[in-house]
Simulated scan of single mutants.
Amino acid sequence: MNARTLTDFSTLTGRLEAVDVVVALPGKTLLQGVSAQFSAGQVTAILGPNGAGKSTLMAVLSGQRQPSSGEVCLAGQTLAAHTLADLARVRACVAQETQVAFEFTVREVVELGRYPHRRQPSRHEAAIVLQAMQATQVDHLAERALNTLSGGEKARAHLARALAQVWDNVGDHSARWLLLDEPTAALDLQHQHRMLQLARDWACEQGVGVVAVLHDLNLALRYSERCVVLQGGQVVASGLTPKVLTPACIAKVWGVHAQAVPALGGLAHRLQYVFEPV
């Protein structure tokens, strides 16, 4: 069974939005009045140099960290207005580092993604788990203990778990969300592209809203429609990715010179850069 393909994403409800979010610690402010909107059917990249606040913003969007002020809204309501059970049925998160305390197999980890649907299970539960593993190319590792895998294999297994969690629409036209914090960090080049192409396919073909923290600007240019650029805990640019990631923006935020080069693989319409120190 494949997740149902949607043709009219305008019928989906559930825009994810950060409104004037502040995250402050004693002596340090991690986010300063951050506002950003994320839409279903798109890949949005959260970008910025180290320490810009990318993972902090992702933690606030996922509800793992409470803002000092401001709020995160989903479908026009604050996250606190939604039950955790309802959120879990439409939103899946993949953190930078996820520790598993027990010797769960890959299959068991991916099956955990179906736990929020236990009261109204699909007729195809086993098939969903298998196809989620196949989508991230970990099906051959199904009976391996997760803690015996490489970092990249673990990352792909956790993505399979997230896919399984939001595999189906829940029947009320709510948008589904994948929140990915540095999903390519542990992956080799091939799997970086495979993972982001998979995320893009889910966004474009099924209307899933994908929000991903990325470091590689060329990956963002290739796979994201929109981006939010953070610097010093503030939004310094947002909008369509190729219009935001200009050489001037890159020089200002990252301190490197960006020179456009022809894209490979029939992607001449897509921008990509080589980088040199300013």
Rank of each mutant, 00 (worst) to 15 (best):
L57I: 14
V213Q: 07
A155P: 01
T5L: 15
A127P: 01
V19S: 01
F9V: 15
L198P: 11
V166G: 05
T184P: 04
E143H: 15
A263Q: 04
L47Y: 06
R91N: 06
V208C: 09
G48R: 01
V34H: 00
N218F: 14
M133R: 01
D188Y: 02
A18D: 01
S55F: 02
A80T: 04
H124C: 11
M58S: 04
T83H: 02
V208E: 08
A3D: 01
Q206N: 10
L221A: 10
L84G: 14
Q231C: 15
Q32G: 05
L112Q: 08
S150A: 07
A220V: 06
G152R: 00
L12Y: 02
Q77V: 14
V109F: 13
A212F: 00
G76W: 09
T105D: 14
G48I: 15
Q259W: 01
A237T: 14
A85T: 10
V110C: 10
A132L: 13
R119L: 15
G53N: 03
N169P: 15
A162Q: 06
H191M: 11
T78K: 15
L219V: 01
C249A: 12
A260Y: 00
W177M: 08
M58T: 03
V106H: 07
G152C: 03
V229T: 09
L31P: 03
G76I: 13
K28P: 03
R156P: 07
S55K: 01
D8T: 08
L264R: 03
V60L: 09
R176I: 14
A164N: 12
I46R: 02
A142M: 10
H158Q: 14
L30S: 09
A186C: 02
H140R: 08
L6Q: 07
A88F: 03
D188M: 08
D168Y: 05
E97L: 12
L47C: 05
